[in-house]
Amino acid sequence: MKKKTLNLFLLLIFYVTLGAKAQNRLPKAFNFLLGSWEMQTSKGKIIEHWKINTDQNLKGESYRINIKGDSLLTETLTIKKIGKEVFYCSTVTGQNDGKEVCFKLISTKQNTYIFENLTHDFPQRIVYQNQGKDHLLAWIEGAINGQNKKSEFKYKRI
């Protein structure tokens, strides 16, 4: 009887642990980001690379590559669940004393994912729009000194 009770207890612990891990997983809707994306600019190109981390969060890195081919890491990115909410978190090289800044997911309509942090100086919103297998549109927007500003990033899969 003790062995049966112990087995039931261990089975219960297993299912509770499995359920907790499943609750912390990101929705598969973000998998469209996985892989490498490139945007040509007049000064070279911007590369974003996304993968699934061992903790099941999406981990990204953004690089600028100049015309000579020199690369510079500009930011590290994470899309993760904190509690029941999803956040886009960025650590930008040379900004915010190296601290991560997070933006809460506020909308997921029509393949467009809007993350917002109204307390941040700029941007206050970061948006990713899935435009099919090989195209991704991202933009940042918000107000600077009372003026609305928006910067777009048109990526192609590489």
Rank of each mutant, 00 (worst) to 15 (best):
M1D: 04
K2H: 09
K3C: 02
T5P: 00
T5C: 07
L6P: 02
L6V: 14
N7A: 14
N7D: 04
N7G: 07
F9Y: 09
L12Y: 06
L12P: 00
I13T: 14
T17R: 04
T17K: 03
G19K: 08
K21V: 14
Q23V: 11
Q23T: 11
R25H: 10
L26A: 02
L26T: 01
L26Y: 03
P27M: 08
P27V: 05
P27Y: 03
K28F: 02
F30E: 03
F32N: 10
F32M: 12
G35V: 13
M39T: 06
M39W: 05
S42L: 13
S42M: 11
I46C: 07
I46S: 05
E48Q: 15
K51F: 06
K51E: 14
K51S: 12
K51D: 04
I52Y: 03
T54K: 13
T54W: 02
T54F: 02
D55M: 10
D55L: 11
L58H: 02
L58I: 06
G60L: 13
G60I: 12
G60D: 08
E61A: 13
E61Q: 15
I65V: 15
N66E: 07
N66T: 08
G69D: 08
S71T: 12
S71F: 08
L72W: 07
E75C: 10
L77H: 01
T78R: 15
T78H: 07
I79P: 01
K80T: 10
K81F: 09
K81M: 03
K84R: 07
K84N: 12
Y88T: 05
Y88I: 05
C89H: 03
S90C: 06
T91R: 12
G94V: 04
G94Y: 09
G94R: 11
K99T: 03
V101H: 07
C102M: 13
F103M: 07
K104D: 05
L105M: 12
I106E: 09
I106A: 04
I106P: 00
S107T: 03
S107M: 11
K109F: 05
Q110M: 02
N111M: 07
T112M: 09
I114Y: 02
I114Q: 09
I114C: 04
N117L: 00
N117G: 00
L118T: 10
L118F: 01
T119L: 12
D121E: 15
D121Y: 13
P123Y: 04
Q124A: 01
R125A: 05
R125E: 12
R125L: 04
I126M: 12
I126K: 10
I126V: 15
V127W: 04
V127F: 00
V127I: 13
Y128W: 10
Q129S: 11
N130G: 03
N130D: 14
N130E: 08
G132Y: 01
K133P: 00
K133E: 07
H135K: 15
L137Q: 05
W139L: 15
W139K: 10
I140D: 05
E141Y: 03
A143G: 03
A143F: 12
I144M: 10
G146E: 05
Q147R: 15
N148P: 01
S151L: 14
S151E: 14
E152W: 08
E152Q: 11
E152H: 07
K154A: 08
K154H: 06
Y155S: 08
K156R: 14
R157A: 10
R157W: 07
R157V: 04
